[in-house]
């Protein structure tokens, strides 16, 4: 399983705008590059990223071959309740990765 790194505040005030940073290891092979024998290297990229906050989708992104290796996505949300942030990455060749972090809202 790919290694992912989440940076989100563990604690926030109710109504506070918080930044969530996500980084995942992935080669993001474009499918356009030839290998040393001239044959194209098959595409292998992450195609989708979804973040859910207590089960509710708050952010979704589609990824394409022009996105660099080890995609780093950051976005903002409003901290409105204590709970869990779930992250999911879906890609070519059946790639999936999940991660979750807890947040306490005071």
């Amino acid at each position: 399983m790919a290694r992912a790194l989440i940076n989100a505040p563990a604690k926030a005030k109710r109504g506070e705008v918080i930044e969530i940073k996500t980084l995942i290891s992935h080669i993001m092979e474009t499918g356009f590059r030839p290998d040393s024998t001239g044959k194209p290297v098959p595409r292998d990229i992450i195609t989708e990223f979804i973040c859910k906050y207590n089960g509710e989708e708050i952010f979704r992104a589609e990824l394409f071959p022009a996105i660099a290796a080890n995609p780093f996505l950051t976005f903002f949300t409003v901290a409105d309740e204590t709970g869990t942030l779930n992250f999911e990455w879906i890609g070519d060749n059946g790639f999936t990765a999940t991660e979750s972090v807890n947040i306490t809202v005071e």
Binding site: R3, L5, N7, L23, S25, N70, F72
Partner: peptide, 15 residues
């Protein structure tokens, strides 16, 4: 990117 370990992709190798 370099200043913040959570944004520095090299952290993936360190882990």
């Amino acid at each position: 990117m370099q200043d913040d370990d959570s944004a520095n992709p090299a952290t993936l190798w360190v882990l």
